[in-house]
Amino acid sequence: MSALFYISSLIAILATIMVITRYNPIHALLYLVVSLMAAAMIFVTLGAPFVAALEVIIYAGAIMVLFIFFVMMLNLGNTTTLQEKLWLQPKIWIGPSILSLILLGELIVLLLQEKPTPLPVTVVDARKVALSLYGEYIIIVELAGFLLMAGIVGAAHIGKHRKKHLHRFLQEEENSHGHPPASQADNAKQIVDHKEPKSIV
């Protein structure tokens, strides 16, 4: 059991390193799927098979597929890879990485301070989780429902394809560069709209 844990955590860490160093978004996404599978394996060794199944189904199966469809829709090809190669210079990433790794070292030192207690692996199965979820944590289920509803409505509203909206100052600037001002066209349209019912009458 412990060998399984160590191997899968090693795979998770290596795949995550590959995710944050890839130039091509699709390669990074596929490595992240591997990392999430390894995390699901960690959950199994921790005695949480229900969460492991959900990790595979929702994280690796739904969210990552959403990302992959998105990258396909934006058609990010070789130009993006070249651009990433230009952006990812060592002098850019070396500073934040070293500082974050120092913080990680501090955290590991803190975690190693306390006495290591062996982890009891008793399987907490879906029945116990469901009893807890629909018993004492029922408010969390309702809040998650609210959150998902707000996410759906927000995504549908934001993702609607609209024409480019400029701020009114920018619009005036653009109009002063030779385009016909939009306000006059609007006024003319309104006049036409006002005239039409009269002619009908």
Binding site: S2, F5, P116, T117, P118, L119
Partner: peptide
């Protein structure tokens, strides 16, 4: 049966 402890998981 198990020989890994809680700190290891938290470190990962």
């Amino acid at each position: 049966m198990t020989s890994f402890n809680t700190n290891t998981v938290l470190i990962v």
